[in-house]
Design a protein around this nucleic acid. Structure first.
Length: 163
DNA sequence: GACCTGATTGTTAGG
DNA sequence: CCTAACAATCAGGTC
């Protein structure tokens, strides 16, 4: 009983149009509700776009924490096989974490965003020069971003005196 | 064999 | 200002 077309890019029912928004503002809890009704969460459901270098959104602090959490969770629950379990456990744990604990994760997320901005710049550039799409391949290793040297300074300045 | 779904929160960009 | 959607993961489920 497949709810929608198996291969189709998640075709939602007309209900979505009937009830696009029903909850109040602020609480994204409704989103969960929507996922059940419309289920438009993340997945691969793009109509096919031509993106030279898809600038995927940087993982939020929660995701950064989750990445590590997943490993730990698996170690403690090798039998478990539900992604949702990690999500739930991670979500609760995340809220349980102190701001100081999330600080390092947020810092990482912030860095991710910086990189994302850079990628977006390139992405925007490509989009602008649609004429060069032909040369894009041969030229890509040349122009691109000029400052691509090894400038990796992992500065970990954490002054956790928040508490 | 291939593609989608679930669940968590945060961030991001557009209207 | 607010809304909608998407970011990872991974195995199960369906065609």
């Amino acid at each position: 009983m497949r709810p929608t077309k198996g291969k189709g890019p998640v075709k939602k029912d007309t209900k979505e149009a009937l009830k696009p928004v029903e909850d109040k503002v602020g609480k994204r809890k409704a989103v969960s509700n929507v996922s059940k009704s419309s289920k438009r969460q993340a997945t691969k459901a793009k109509p096919a776009k031509k993106d030279p270098n898809k600038p995927k959104r940087p993982p939020s602090a929660f995701f950064v924490f989750l990445e590590e959490f997943r490993k730990t969770y698996k170690l403690e629950h090798p039998n478990n096989k539900a992604v949702s379990a990690v999500g739930k456990a991670g979500g609760e744990k995340w809220k349980s974490l102190s701001p100081a604990e999330k600080a390092p994760y947020e810092a990482k997320a912030a860095k991710r965003k910086t990189e994302y901005e850079k990628v977006m710049t390139s992405y925007n550039k490509k989009q602008e020069s649609v004429d060069d799409e032909n040369d894009e391949e041969s030229d890509k290793s040349k122009s691109e971003v000029s400052g691509e040297d090894d400038e990796k300074s992992e500065e970990e300045d954490e002054d956790d005196d928040d508490e």
